[in-house]
């Protein structure tokens, strides 16, 4: 379960940034007073155009950056006061995630399992399950730098899931991937839902959102524009397509 209340993140602006934004303010909000909840077994989508504040929100959820104000509760743990404890419950995957090119898949997964304090017998078991599931055995001993984009993405998925997190955060996970590789991510998100995990993912691709999510929130310029179920979003649509409706919501 993820509970986010009145979440804000303020960044200080340097002279150049003030000029670019045509403002005299010393600060700018990347995210302003956002609140939402995401339940286990549910896929929650954070939607917005580029620069809307999606990544900043997800980075705050994963405790990589600290909010300026507001609260985040991850699986019953206050992510602001106990960030390390909160991180234990999270699996984090972004489309731009890099991997250590000089390690092989086994070494990389073992390293991340050790960072999550996963006991060795459990690591062996989880690795076997994930390697079989993702069909990774053939290239598991090859250096990651020599793998194809699709293979690398499988390694990333395996890294995200090795500690069996109860909450999975995907930040534009299919961005820049070909359809076949993107499909493996879509399948992973579905599997997470079926395993009763709490799933939150950000995207600007409406088709992907329509296909997967139970509830969604649309943010633009750091502010919440819409929050509700996918079903009610479809019902209240006045435009012909979901993409057109999304654009209308953002521009409203």
């Amino acid at each position: 379960m993820i509970k986010v209340k009145d979440l804000s993140k303020k960044f200080s602006l340097n002279k150049e940034q003030r000029k670019e934004r045509n403002t005299n303010d010393n600060f700018a909000f990347a995210v302003k007073d956002i609140s939402f909840e995401c339940k286990p077994g549910e896929i929650f989508s954070l939607l917005g155009p580029n620069g809307a504040g999606k990544t900043t929100t997800l980075r705050m959820l994963s405790t990589v950056i600290t909010p300026t104000s507001g609260s985040i509760v991850i699986g019953g743990v206050d992510a602001i006061t106990e960030p390390q404890e909160a991180r234990r419950k999270i699996g984090f995957l972004t489309g731009s995630t890099g991997l250590y090119a000089r390690l092989n898949a086994h070494e990389l997964i073992d390293y991340f399992a050790s960072l999550y304090d996963v006991p060795n017998p459990v690591v062996r078991e989880r690795k076997k399950y994930l390697f079989d599931l993702l069909d990774m055995n053939e290239f598991a001993n090859k250096k990651i730098g020599k793998l194809s984009t699709g293979m690398k993405q499988k390694v990333s998925i395996c890294r995200t899931m090795i500690h069996d997190p109860e909450i999975v955060i995907f930040d534009e996970p299919t961005s820049g991937l070909d359809v076949i590789t993107a499909e493996s991510i879509i399948q992973l998100i579905r599997d997470c839902k079926s395993q009763n995990k709490t799933v939150i993912f950000s995207s600007h691709i409406m088709g992907e959102v329509d296909l997967l999510c139970d509830r969604l929130a649309i943010i633009h310029k750091g502010e919440m524009k819409y929050k509700g179920s996918m079903e009610s979003f479809r019902e209240q649509m006045s435009e012909k397509s979901i993409t057109a409706e999304f654009i209308k919501t953002v521009q409203a």
């Binding site: 990589v64 991180r87 984090f92 972004t94 995630t97 991997l99 250590y100 991340f112 960072l115 999550y116």
Partner: peptide, 10 residues
């Protein structure tokens, strides 16, 4: 682009 993932670990 590996630092972000690293910082999401406990």
């Amino acid at each position: 682009g590996t630092i972000e993932t690293l910082l999401t670990t406990p």
